[in-house]
Each structure stands twice: as C-alpha cells, then as structure tokens.
Nucleic acid binder design. Structure first.
Lengths: 206, 206
DNA sequence: ATGAAAGTTGAACCGACTTTCAACTTAGTT
DNA sequence: AACTAAGTTGAAAGTCGGTTCAACTTTCAT
C-alpha cells in the first residue's frame, strides 16, 4: 500500500496527512471492491474512512484518479505476490509456472476486491488495464524464452508464437482465478497441477 | 437480432413498433460499444436511433434492462457464430477446437462492441455474465468429454480436471481475442494454430 | 369512415452525486 | 504564547442524466 500515490501536488506533508490518505485508500479498496466504480461514491469512501467529504479532495483530484492509483497499486500487488515463488523452489520452467498459478489463485481467493478492480479497469482506466496485462504477458513470455534457452521446452517458438502462448497462459490463469478462487474455492495446488499437466504434455493422445 | 426481447409486457404489437424496437437495439449496441455502460446515455441511444427520448420507455423499463437484453443476445450471437464450424470439417476433437478459436477470433475482430458488452456485463449484469461463461464452459467440457470417449485424448480426466481445463481453454481464447482481434489484428488461423499446438502437445520437452 | 389501441413526443421533474470553498482546527516552530 | 502551514469540515452549488407523463399522431380492424 506504501506505493500508492495521491494526485499531483497533493501528497501529504505530515504524518497526520499520511495516515488520513491511507485511511481513504483502504476505504476506497473496500468501496470499489464491494460496489464497483459507478455504484461507489465519494461519500461512501469518506464515511468508511471516517473523514469528512471534503478531505477526499485534499488528496485526489477526482474519483477517476483515485481509481487509477488503486489499479496501479493492485497490479503491483499481484506481481509482488507471485514474484517470490518464481525464484524459490526446484524444478524446471514449467514447474515455475505451476507455482506461479497456485500463488495467484491463493492471492485471488484472499483479495477478491483486487480482482474486481483490475477487471473493471478495462472500462474506467483502459490505459492502466492494458498496461497491466501487457507487462504481465511480457513477463510470462520472458520466462518462457528463458526456459526455452535452457532446452526445457519442446521447441523454439517464433516471437509471435511466444507472445500468443504467453497471452493464452495468462488468460487461462485469469479465468481459473475467476472460477476457482473468486466464484468458488478449490484447492489452488490441485487446480494448478491439472492446468500444468495440460501445459506440459497437452491433451492429445501420443 | 430477432431474439432480443423488450422488457416484460412491452413487446411491440405492430410492424411499426417492431421496426422502432430494432432501431433502438441497433443504436444501443453502437452506443454501449463505443462509450461503455455508464458513459452511454438514453439520449445518445434515442438520438442515434432517431426517435424521441420517451419512446425508449415504450420498450424498456430501464437502461439496465436494455443492457441485459443485449448481453443475452450477444451471448447467443457468439455461440451461433462458432457453432457451424463445430459440426463441419474433418479432424479430431482438438482440430474442432482449433476451428472454434479461429471462428471466435474472426467474430471478435468484426464485432468489437460485442466483446466490450460481454466484458462489461461483469459489472452491469453479473448474472448474465456468469451465465454466459458458465454455459460456454459446460459446452467446451462436453466437447472434450466427447473427444475423450472417442479415445482422442491422452487420458480420461476427472470431472474437476475436465472443468478446469475447459475454463483454462476458454480464458485463453478470450485473452487471445482481446490481444489479437480487438487490440491488434493477426491472422486468426495462425493464432489458432499456435494455440492448438500448445493444447495438443504441450510445451514440455518429450 | 370511425373509434380504439398502439405508438410517439420532448419538456420538465427528480434525485443523486461530484466538486467547491470559506471557516475552523491541529500541530509544529520560534 | 503567537504564528503559520497543513489538514479538516460539511453545507451548498452545480451538473447530469434517467425517468415520467399528458398531449398528440399513426395504424388498423370493423
């Protein structure tokens, strides 16, 4: 949460201000997570945060800017939550992807608001939304290229193929999160294992 | 478009009424597709349709109900557009999935509004959204079960596995559509072929 | 041709929400 | 204690767009 920024020229200058800003951000995450962007209201946010309506405008220029700030932060949170499992543990590059999916599912189950905010960014903050998925795809593609360079993959893929595969894996992960973490809850390791079999060996008869 | 319904008790009773309803629906698709749900306005819709503001309420109880009607219709359109390639053509069950993805990508490229409306339904019409993806997933799972029964797949999967795989494939398709049909445009057959290799053989070295 | 049902019109109503702002409070410095 | 910068307050302004409705027009069966 430390990374979230107020609007330009509106950063808090005292400890009191910083505390207030944090209260607003926490409240905003709840409000947007529960009610969605357009149903959410500044009054709802400020009353959850137990500050006056006007205080909001000490830190943000508009509801949109607050939302954008949250999208940036949530995007970073997802990344930071998955990152640790990428460097630790044994196994090859595809094992690494399995752990990443399991970590993502665990995170999604615990932070459904985050999920909703990133999804809704497609309409409220299209640039932020696109940036989130494009950088995520690039990150996945880089990991795959790395695994390919170590000879762990079936074959070297063309750049288009690598990108397409990265988007396919990302989309699979997002939808699995929606189905098995946000809507229902299944064992993340089990879901990740099933998916990983698909990714490693495919579905076709040998 | 014939399937779209007006709100309860508001169905047109004359040819004139039917024509007006159709004008409103066409205009609504454009308006929602271009501006999104909350930016879209009834005035925007009725002026595109070249009817008076009040006419809208002859056929719909609210902006939300219109949107829901459109979601139902778009969901059916996607299904109907993909269906033909499932029964025609040669090859096994995985080939069938390849053709389905290619057809979906072609449809998405030509009907970006449809894409946007279904995505935004997550927030405006959660029930419709969920229904769309759940029935789609069930359909995919049934096709896979069918292929498995014919011995075309590597192994029989457990019910959880089958469902998870269906959601993974669906998510992959949706994200590929976003990246390679809505945001950018690549040859649908090429993208489908790349993805199909992944699904058939997996990425792992043999 | 006529009457009734269906459809159309757009000004006005209405409520809800974002945003502003001038007065007030708090905290830290000299 | 006095001063000042930062932060807080909430009433009120301003805006916007969904919805209503009573008058009007069109259609069509008899």
């Amino acid at each position: 949460m430390a990374s979230v920024q107020a609007s330009d020229g509106k950063a808090p200058r005292t400890a009191r201000g910083e505390k207030t800003l944090r209260k607003i951000l926490t409240a905003a995450l709840e409000e947007f997570g529960e009610r969605g962007f357009s149903e959410a209201s500044i009054v709802g946010i400020t009353s959850r945060a137990k500050v006056a309506l006007g205080t909001f405008y000490t830190y943000f220029d508009s509801k949109e800017e607050l939302f954008q700030a949250l999208v940036r932060d949530m995007s970073a949170q997802v990344r930071d939550h998955v990152a640790p499992v990428l460097t630790s543990g044994t196994g090859d590059g595809l094992d690494r992807e399995r752990r990443a999916l399991a970590a993502f599912l665990r995170f999604a189950a615990e932070h459904k608001q985050v999920y909703r905010i990133i999804d809704e960014a497609e309409f409220v903050d299209p640039k932020g939304f696109r940036k989130h998925y494009e950088t995520t795809a690039v990150r996945i593609a880089a990991r795959l290229a790395d695994a390919a360079a170590r000879g762990e993959l079936r074959e070297d893929e063309s750049p288009l193929a690598l990108e397409a595969i990265a988007w396919a894996l990302m989309g699979a992960n997002v939808f699995l999160g929606l189905r098995f973490a946000v809507w229902g809850q299944s064992d993340p390791d089990e879901v990740a294992a099933i998916t990983n079999r698909l990714i490693r060996h495919g579905l076709g008869a040998p």
